[in-house]
Amino acid sequence: MKLVTVAGPPSSGKTSVILKLIEGMDLAKGSIGVVKFDCLTSFDKRSYQEAGIPVQVGFSGKICPDHYYVSNIEDAVQWGIQSGLKLLITESAGLCNRCSPYINGILSICVIDNLSGINTPRKIGPMLRFADIVVITKGDIVSQAEREVFSFNVKQVNSSGKVIFVNGITGQGTFLLAKYLEQARDTQTLKELKLRFTTPAAICSYCTGETRIGEKYQMGMLKKLEFEGI
């Protein structure tokens, strides 16, 4: 089974891109499955089901979504293999610009949209920096110049990544993306493979449910902002 990981900020168009991509791939219906890692709620399960795509959805709840992703990704792979999938796509929402749910040797796609602001590519960090393919959506409603500047800014932080413009509504661009996906390598297990980048670190009192404010409640890994002029 081939495995592809897709990440991107909330509402950047990940699900639309994946739906159009699957539609355009030359594989039997039901042989491409999706595992969606989300935080609190998601309305995408139905979209996938309506398209006849085998789907599993998991919610990280109060846990960092990336930590949740790493702890569950091997099980997702085994689910895919047992379900007889030819291709498994995992989808996860990056929340803090610090997410990077990519694994060495596994084809990784980052989805970002043209409306998110011209400098956003420079701010996103590892989620964009470590992706093999950068899919830019919503390009149909901004000017050519903005598309060019946007992809230039993507190139600045990820010069080796391939940039593809995809229209999540019409599916324009998914053809090239599908071509890339054919290169994804076969995967039986992810055991012993490594993440491309560390997940956001947080082992402090607030991780374990502390809600009170003040120094005496802060324990564990902390980082303080240094205010100038004090």
Partner: peptide
């Protein structure tokens, strides 16, 4: 070549394009 050229070969202009910056 296709992938290298893709995206760079074609500029598009359509009626529903706007400036967002």
């Amino acid at each position: 070549q296709r992938f290298e050229m893709g995206g760079k070969l074609v500029a598009q202009l359509s009626q529903n394009m706007n400036f967002v910056m």
